[in-house]
Design a protein around this nucleic acid. Structure first.
Length: 614
RNA sequence: GGGGGCGUAGCUCAGUUGGUUAGAGCGCUAGCCUGUCACGCUAGAGGUCGCGGGUUCGAGCCCCGUCGCUCCCGCCA
């Protein structure tokens, strides 16, 4: 591609590139000489008169050329996305041709001179317009996509949100720290990204999955209130709301605190940020606290979308010994079996109920039993096969318990709650979506509290940590230290001082009051079957630190990308990350990951063994 | 690792029951056009229908395999 010859500037006193940005000119500027630089967003060539929408980061200004202007010939050669400098006089647009959609819409620049600064070839993806394009094209030409309004605005908003978070954290007495990026392979559960060591053959650094141990060490070091907009690295498969490889957390930790203190510190920051950037959407004024068990029973998940008004209920009593033999039999065979009801307000049509039933079968479920209610001779009567077998009396009891009326329906799942809870939660979500019950115009927060400390691993017939092994068990220390294997039920009933913050069904974060006592930690790991020697080997640094005067401490780490995603109204993290990788953890623009030279590998004592050749 | 969806022009897509020369819009090229802001009008170029194999007189369409993208499950304390 050739650059057209540059035209020597006639106004030597002007800045080389611009006197104004493309979003600056207003009616008060009419009559002045202006110089603008930017991209040719859109060109409308009428033969005799030619319009260029010149765009930069700040806005769009209409530039006009006609055969009387010296630059007309150059203007006719311009194409979309060329970068140009234009000089000209700011003038009022003729009456009736103002564009109220543009802040600069009452003026235009009548061009005298054009210099092409950066021509562009044929575009693989236009910048103009809001058409959707495939992910791989968008990612390969991310710089073009980022010129487009939506992504450009998302990225700006991301920066503003992070600024606001920093401001609010510092106002609460938190200090920002930087923790290492090259560190040791860590105890957290995800797969590490490893970096081979040149100086130590056969040894590896790992990128931090989170600065978990460092922030605890900062507390042990006496700093009291830590935060960081922290990069985190995990080598796990991606999801729409889970970036592959790397992401950012608002990581924070506090000393001498209870769970309430952490909530009191974090909740105003999160609520404040959401109120600031929600664009008027209401935000939960006081985040409710929902125990893990209650969340499972009411919503079928530990990250409920509280915009969905559907609340499930245990209706085993109504089905036990009833004429609906399928459920009655299930309840007889096991003491833990249950029947849960999922109310569906305004879902009371056979068509909807049948649709839900076939959806359930598509989800590998036997089906989804239902009753729908309809008015009949002044009374509200349950319809459908379940109601017929259950009988009028029990159906009416059910209707009253769930407060259902003419036009409503209710669905049932039966069996072991442990196995059906996930499906029940999905059905609740499906009902909410299908019936339009979810108010999209709000941010509904909650805390999920009282997570179980341990869970039973049926495959290996052993007790496992349920979530974070470094959380403090919610039991007096003396009592915890005297637990033994015979207390299995007590152990499995133990709760950890651990919590999640959830917004609109998206898990923003996990946090905990940490286990700062080496004796408690050794006991906690012993219960999960880790011998003390292994604990010493894997976490000796941490254990030493905790044994030389550690304050009680706790914290949390809300995901920055997810917060920005919610506030931008996006459903995919890639829309709020500047240069994201694709689902297979590749950067299509930079070509990462890539092969490296044999010399590099030799220095790192690495040999590549391809599958099938070893 | 498993399951679903998609793959046709530079881009977005249509393509009937398997049947003549695979179409449209945007973009691109050339021409016309003095007030548009998704400017308009005329003409033109542009295709290994992801790739490989099969069935068939005949495949963009059916079958098998494979690759790529994406969503989900596993995984992510």
């Amino acid at each position: 591609m050739r650059f057209p010859p540059a035209v020597k500037s006639q106004i030597s006193t002007m800045h080389r590139y611009r006197t104004h940005t493309c979003g600056a000119l207003r009616s008060g500027d009419i009559g002045i000489e202006a110089r603008l630089s930017g991209w040719c967003h859109r060109i409308r060539d009428h033969g005799g008169v030619l319009f260029i929408d010149l765009r930069d980061h700040y806005g769009i200004t209409q530039v006009v050329a006609d055969p009387d202007s010296a630059a007309f010939k150059v203007a006719e050669t311009l194409r979309a996305e060329w970068v140009v400098r234009v000089d000209g006089k700011v003038r009022a647009r003729p009456d009736g041709t103002e564009n109220p959609d543009l802040p600069t819409g009452v003026v235009e620049v009548y061009v005298r001179e054009i210099e092409v600064l950066g021509p562009a070839g044929e575009l693989p993806m236009p910048v103009f317009g809001d058409q959707e394009y495939p992910e791989d094209i968008r990612l390969k030409y991310r710089f073009l996509d980022l010129r487009r309004e939506r992504l450009h605005n998302n990225i700006i908003k991301r920066g503003e949100i992070i600024d606001s978070i920093r401001r609010r954290m510092k106002a609460q007495g938190f200090f920002e720290f930087q923790t290492p990026i090259l560190t040791a392979s860590s105890p957290e559960g995800a797969r590490d990204y490893l970096v081979p060591s040149r100086l130590h053959e056969g040894k590896f650094y790992a990128l931090p999955q989170a600065p978990q141990q460092f922030k605890q060490l900062i507390m042990v070091s006496g700093f009291d209130r830590y935060f960081q907009i922290a990069p985190c690295f995990r080598d796990e498969d991606a999801r729409a709301d889970r970036s592959p490889g790397e992401f950012y957390q608002l990581d924070l930790e506090m000393s001498f605190v209870t769970q309430d203190d952490v909530f009191d510190a974090v909740e105003p920051v999160i609520r404040g940020v959401f109120e600031e950037f929600a664009g008027g959407k209401p935000v939960t004024p006081k985040f409710p606290r929902i125990p893990y068990k209650e969340a499972q029973e009411k919503y079928g998940t530990d990250k409920p979308d509280l915009r969905n008004p559907v609340v499930m209920a245990n209706v085993s009593d109504i089905f036990r010994g009833s004429g609906f033999k399928i459920f009655a039999r299930i309840l007889e065979t096991s003491g833990t079996a249950a029947v849960w009801a999922i109310p569906a307000p305004r879902g009371g049509s056979r068509a909807f109920c049948d649709r839900m039933n076939s959806w359930a079968q598509g989800e590998d479920q036997p089906g989804l039993g239902y009753i729908f209610f309809a008015g009949e001779g002044g009374a509200v009567v349950g319809r459908g096969p379940v109601a017929n077998n259950l009988g009028a009396e029990r159906t009416e009891a059910l209707r009253q318990k769930l407060d259902l009326n003419d036009g409503d329906a209710v669905f049932f799942v039966a069996g072991e709650p442990q196995t059906f809870v996930k499906f029940a939660g999905a059905a609740r979500t499906k009902i909410g979506e299908e019936l339009g019950l979810i108010d999209k115009g709000r941010f509904e927060f909650c805390w999920i509290v009282d997570f179980p400390m341990y869970e039973w691993n049926e495959d290996e017939k052993k007790i496992d940590f349920s979530h974070n092994p470094f959380s403090m068990p919610n039991l007096p220390v003396d009592e915890f230290l005297t637990l033994d294997a015979s207390d299995r039920d007590k152990i499995l009933g133990l709760r950890a001082i651990q919590y999640d913050i959830v917004c609109n069904g998206v898990e923003l974060s996990s946090g905990a009051i940490r286990n700062h006592r080496p004796d408690v930690m050794k006991k906690a790991f012993a219960i999960a079957g880790y011998p003390e020697a292994e604990l010493e080997k894997r976490f000796s640094g941490m254990l030493h630190a905790l044994s030389l005067g550690a304050p009680p401490h706790g914290g949390i780490a809300p995901g920055i990308d997810r917060i920005v995603m919610l506030l931008c109204g996006e459903e995919n993290l890639r829309e709020v990350v500047l240069f994201p990788m694709n689902q297979r953890a590749e950067d299509l623009m930079m070509g990462a990951p890539s092969e490296v030279s044999p010399k590099q590998l030799r220095e790192l004592h690495i040999r590549v063994v391809r599958p099938g050749t070893s």
